[in-house]
């Protein structure tokens, strides 16, 4: 964590900048003068539910969600590829949306529920097998990002057509060019899911 950050006094009133010696003093001031309660809790302490497991973490403001998931939690399914939001390799599912963890600040994710490729595999989702069967990978670096994006699609739209699949996966870059195999794999996974549900 950056040294400057730690030294910054946290007991400034966000509304009028008045300074207080203690956090309790600040809190009493805000309630009395600004009529609002409670004060936002100090930033940095967040709770994430990742692949069904709860984690409490103290994060620096500048840490991205990618850094927390990959470097701190050790989930290698999020990949750094472009690091600027242009490739989809760091995709996680957060509250149902496929989002880019490299362009998300972890400190803004308190209380969120997150899925990564590892969680999708552990849950036995048919996408994993269909990706393997259709050779939907070459070097494999971008593959987990496709898996998470495809899973988010199937959660919302269990029976997508080929065009919907391609539109959903359009933000995932693959330098090896495995693109044509993805719609096939996702369609097969959707069929398998449907069969599982009808049983």
């Amino acid at each position: 964590m950056n040294a400057d950050f730690q030294q910054t006094p946290n007991n400034l009133c966000p509304y009028c900048s008045a300074a207080f010696e203690t956090f309790d003093g600040l809190k009493a001031h805000v309630v009395a003068v600004h009529k609002t309660e409670p004060l936002p809790k100090p930033d940095g302490l967040i709770q994430l539910t990742v692949n069904g497991q709860s984690h409490k973490l103290l994060v620096a403001p500048e840490w991205t969600l990618y850094q927390v998931i990959h470097d701190k939690l050790g989930l290698t399914g999020v990949k750094m590829f472009c690091d600027r939001g242009a490739c989809g390799s760091c995709t996680v599912i957060m509250d149902g949306r496929p989002i880019l963890s490299c362009m998300t600040l972890a400190i803004e994710c308190d209380g969120k529920t997150i899925e990564t490729a590892e969680g999708i595999a552990e849950a036995g989702h048919p996408l994993i097998d269909s990706y393997v069967n259709h050779h939907t990978m070459q070097c494999g670096y971008c593959t987990p990002g496709f898996i998470t994006t495809a899973k988010a699609l199937l959660d919302r739209n269990p029976e997508p057509n080929e065009s919907e699949i391609m539109q959903a996966l359009a933000g995932n870059l693959c330098r090896c060019g495995t693109y044509p195999q993805h719609p096939k794999a996702v369609l097969e996974a959707a069929r398998t899911l449907k069969e599982e549900h009808s049983k």
């Binding site: 290698t76 399914g77 990949k79 595999a121 990706y131 050779h135 939907t136 670096y141």
Partner: peptide, 23 residues
């Protein structure tokens, strides 16, 4: 056709390790 890819599961599940993953 249909021979199971050696690297398939690891790559799809995010378990495949690349150099940057080494700590």
């Amino acid at each position: 056709r249909g021979v199971r890819r050696y690297d398939g599961f690891e790559k799809a599940s995010g378990k495949a390790l690349y150099t940057r993953d080494v700590n």
